[in-house]
C-alpha cells in the first residue's frame, strides 16, 4: 500500500472487495446473527443506534481476526484447494496488508464497542480476537487434532458478547448460548471432513480424520451430539427459553442425535456406496440446527414482549 508501489510493477491492483474478503464475510454473517440474538433476548435493551453499533463492531472484530488468520495461515491456505483462492495466497493482497488491516480493525472494533456499550463487552471481544488469532491460528491449529474443538470457542463468543453488551455481565444464559455453539462446532466440521476429500494432510494441519482415523471421527461426532443435548435443553429452560425453544430443542436434538448415530453405525465402505449421503445430510442439518435454535430464542423473546 506504500506509495513506492506507484512505480513498481504490480501486475494486479487489489480492489476494495479483495480487502473485504480478508474479513471472511460468510463467517461474519453467522457472527452477526448469533450476536444479534444474544443482544435481543437479553432482559434489558439498548437504544437502536447503540445496538446497531454493537453488532457492527462485534462483526468487525470477528472480521479482523479473520484477516489476522489469513495473514498467518497464508502458507497452508496456498496448499489447500478450498483456501488457495483467498486474497493472500492468491497474491491479490500482500501479507503485510492483511496484518495491518487485521491489527487496525481489531483496535478500532474493540475501542468502538467499549464506547458504544461497555468495557466488559469490549474486553470479551478483545479476548475473542486474541483467542482466534493467537491461541487457535498460531498455536493449536497446527499442533493438535482437537484444534476444531478449541477453535469453536472463538466462534461461540459472539452471542455472549451481544448479551454482555446489553446487560454488562455474564450470566448463565450467555454461558449456555456460548456452550451450544462450542459443542456444535466439532460435529459440524468433522462431518464435513468425512465427506470432503480434504487436503489438510498436505498442508500439515492435524485433523482428527487423519491423525486418529475416520472411525474415531465418527465416534466423536456421536459423542459431541449427545453432549450437546443437555446444553441445549438447559438453555431452553432458562429465562431466555420458552415453548418455541423447547419445541425446537426436542425436534432438532432428536434429529441431530439420530443423524450422528447413523454416521456412527456406518463405515467408509458403506458411505462410499451412496457418496456419503448420511454425512452430507448431517452437515446440512447442523446448519439448520444452529439457525433454528437461535431463531427459536428470538421467537420466544418476541412472545415475552422483550423485542
Amino acid at each position: 500500500m506504500a506509495d513506492a508501489s506507484i512505480n513498481a510493477t504490480r501486475s494486479y491492483e487489489p480492489t476494495f472487495g479483495d480487502y473485504f474478503a480478508l474479513l471472511k464475510p460468510r463467517v461474519m454473517s453467522l457472527v452477526v446473527f448469533t450476536a444479534l440474538v444474544g443482544l435481543l433476548v437479553a432482559p434489558v435493551s439498548l437504544h437502536p443506534v447503540e445496538a446497531f453499533c454493537a453488532i457492527l463492531f462485534i462483526a468487525l472484530g470477528a472480521g479482523a481476526s479473520g484477516a489476522l488468520n489469513m495473514w498467518y495461515d497464508a502458507d497452508i491456505d496456498a496448499v489447500m484447494r478450498r483456501t488457495a483462492k483467498r486474497p493472500v495466497p492468491s497474491g491479490r493482497v500482500e501479507p503485510g496488508e492483511a496484518l495491518a488491516i487485521g491489527v487496525g480493525l481489531s483496535g478500532l472494533s474493540v475501542v468502538m464497542l467499549a464506547l458504544a456499550t461497555n468495557l466488559a463487552a469490549a474486553a470479551l471481544l478483545a479476548f475473542t480476537i486474541f483467542f482466534y488469532a493467537v491461541v487457535y491460528t498460531m498455536w493449536l491449529k497446527r499442533w493438535t487434532p482437537h484444534n476444531i474443538v478449541i477453535g469453536g470457542a472463538a466462534g461461540a463468543f459472539p452471542p455472549m458478547i451481544g448479551w454482555v453488551a446489553v446487560t454488562g455481565t455474564i450470566s448463565i444464559e450467555a454461558v449456555l448460548m456460548f456452550a451450544i455453539i462450542f459443542m456444535w462446532t466439532p460435529p459440524h466440521f468433522w462431518a464435513l471432513a468425512l465427506f470432503t476429500k480434504s487436503d489438510y494432510g498436505d498442508a500439515g494441519v492435524p485433523m482428527l480424520t487423519v491423525t486418529h482415523g475416520r472411525p474415531t471421527t465418527r465416534r466423536h461426532i456421536l459423542a459431541y451430539a449427545l453432549l450437546l443435548v443437555p446444553v441445549a435443553g438447559w438453555l431452553a429452560l432458562t429465562s431466555v427459553g420458552g415453548p418455541v425453544t423447547l419445541l425446537a430443542f426436542a425436534v432438532l436434538n432428536a434429529l441431530f442425535v439420530l443423524g450422528a448415530y447413523r454416521i456412527w453405525t456406518r463405515d467408509d465402505a458403506e458411505a462410499e456406496t451412496d457418496n456419503y449421503l448420511a454425512e452430507r445430510k448431517f452437515f446440512k442439518l447442523s446448519l439448520y440446527y444452529l439457525f433454528l435454535h437461535f431463531g427459536a430464542l428470538l421467537v420466544d423473546a418476541s412472545l415475552r414482549g422483550v423485542l
Binding site: E13, T15, F16, Y19
Partner: peptide, 11 residues
C-alpha cells in the same frame, strides 16, 4: 493509477 484504484478509493 487513479483509474485503476478508483473503486478501492471509493470504497
Amino acid at each position: 493509477l487513479h483509474k485503476r484504484r478508483f473503486s478501492r478509493n471509493l470504497g
